[in-house]
């Protein structure tokens, strides 16, 4: 399967904003999905996948993540992202 058309972008207004992500996704090896919660800072980087655009923001400086989540960053779908300063 071909990868989606991806258009990277940057929104400086979001850089450093603290946010929570009600994330998750389907799990490898099965038909089940799982929820994952993250708290961190938005870098301002985003990616628009396909058309209509499905927007994802990059979050780093994670202060909350699933136990033993091995990465320092996570991509969050825009509608699942909640700015803490709102």
């Amino acid at each position: 399967m071909a990868l989606l058309d991806v258009r990277p972008g940057f929104d400086p207004m979001l850089t450093g904003k603290r946010a929570e992500c009600d994330g998750g996704g389907i799990l490898p090896g099965g038909r089940y999905a799982a929820r994952q919660e993250f708290t961190g800072s938005l870098t301002g980087e985003f990616r628009d996948h396909g058309n209509p655009a499905w927007r994802w923001y990059l979050m780093n400086e994670l202060t909350q993540k699933p136990d033993n989540y091995p990465h320092e960053t996570v991509w969050c779908e825009s509608e699942s992202l909640f700015l803490l300063e709102e």
Binding site: C21, G24, F38, H71, W75, C76, E77, S80
Partner: peptide, 19 residues
């Protein structure tokens, strides 16, 4: 369908299994 709401940085199955 299960639309993902978050995604880790891209990794391969081999990288994950090795950990």
């Amino acid at each position: 369908l299960v639309l993902p709401a978050s995604a880790p940085p891209e990794t391969t199955l081999e990288e994950i299994t090795a950990k």
